[in-house]
Simulated scan of single mutants.
Amino acid sequence: MSLITEQPLQLERTPVDRTARVYVAGARGMVGSAVWRHLARQGFIDLVGPSSMELDLRDRSAVFAWFAANKPQVVILSAARVGGIRANAAYPAQFLSDNVRIQVNVLDAALHHGIDRLLFLGSSCIYPRDAAQPIREEALLTGALEPTNDAYAIAKIAGILHVQAVRRQHGLGWISAMPTNLYGPGDNFHPEHSHVLPSLIRRFDTAHQSGAATVLNWGTGTPRREFLHVDDLARACLHLLDRYDGQSPINVGTGEDISIRETAALVAEIVGYRGSVEWDPDQPDGTPRKLLDISRLTALGWTPQIPLKEGISRTYAWYREHKAAGTART
C-alpha cells in the first residue's frame, strides 16, 4: 500500500514574505538558477545560494556552520547529483551517497534552526516502473523501481519521507514537489551524462554543423516522456510555497507526454537537421512511460505556460549561444 493517503489540499498558508532570507540550495544548477531568477522577478530581495565550491553540502559541519552564520528563513532544496541513464547506471553508489548526504545535512540543519518554510525537490523517478498512467502521488512505494536509476530514486524517496517525518514529529510546514523530466537553460549537454532532451539537442546540433548523414540515437525511441521547462517548474515552486501546506508530495508536470522518437523528430526540425535517424536497440530505453497526474497542482491554480516546441527552441538558442562562449556544460 502507498504511504500517501488521499487528503484535501490545504490552502491555509499566507504567501512567503518577499523580504525573508531565502536559501536556494543548488542555485548554480539548472533548477536552482531558474528558481532564483523567478524569485528575483517576484520581488524577493534577500536570496542566498553559495556555489558547491563555496559550500560542499556533503560536509555536515560546513552546512551547519553556514546555516548558523547566514540564518535563512526559507529553504528551497534543489541541490542534487543528477545525470541520465548511463551516468545513473555507471555510478549508483555515488548517486545514492551524495544525494542522501546533501539532503540529510540540509534538512537537519534547517530543523536545528526551526525553519518552517522548506521545499524539497524530488523527481518523478521515485514512482514504480510499472505504475498506472498518469501517475498519481499515491503510487509512491507501491512497486519496483526502474533499475537504471533506482539508487537516485531511493535517495529522493528518503528525502520525501524525511520531510514527512519532520512534519509529523516537529510540526513544521515542510513540503515536497516531484518534477517530471526537466529541460531548459543551464542544462547539462554532456555526451555521456546528460538527460535525453539535452542529449538529443547536442547530437542533432553536432550532426547539423558537421553535415553528418545519419544520427544514431539510443534505444528504440518508443518510450514516452513528459517534458517540463525549468522556468515553469520555478513558477510552481513559489506557487507551492505560497499556497500549499500538506504531507503529500505534489507532482509538477505538463500532463502531456510524447515518444522519444517524436521528440527526436521535433529536435531535428528545430535544429535544422535533414539527414536520416537510426536507433540502437542495444542501448537501454528506461521506463516505458512516465506521465504524471498533475491534478493536485492544477487544483491549486497553477498550469504550465511554455509549450514544448517553444521551450526546445529557446533551449537550443541558449545552447548555441553558450557553447560559442564556452559556458555550456558539454
Rank of each mutant, 00 (worst) to 15 (best):
A236K: 14
L233D: 12
R296S: 13
T287Q: 12
F189N: 04
N188D: 14
I258F: 09
P223D: 10
T214R: 13
I250E: 04
I270A: 11
H229M: 03
S276E: 15
Q169L: 15
H193L: 15
D187C: 12
S259H: 04
L291V: 03
A264I: 10
T298A: 15
T222S: 06
H208K: 03
L240E: 08
S194T: 11
H195L: 08
R225N: 00
S199K: 08
T298W: 15
I175C: 07
A236P: 12
L300W: 14
G184H: 03
R224N: 00
C237L: 00
T263N: 09
A236I: 15
L291M: 10
L241F: 05
G171Y: 03
L292F: 10
I175E: 02
I258H: 05
H229I: 06
L216S: 09
L197P: 02
S248K: 00
A212D: 09
A265W: 13
T222H: 06
Y244N: 10
S199T: 13
T263F: 07
D187Y: 08
Q169V: 09
R235P: 11
F204W: 06
D280L: 03
N217H: 03
E262R: 06
A207L: 07
L266I: 10
L300G: 13
D205H: 13
T214C: 11
E269P: 07
E226D: 02
G171T: 00
D280T: 02
D257S: 13
W174R: 06
G173N: 15
V163P: 01
E262K: 07
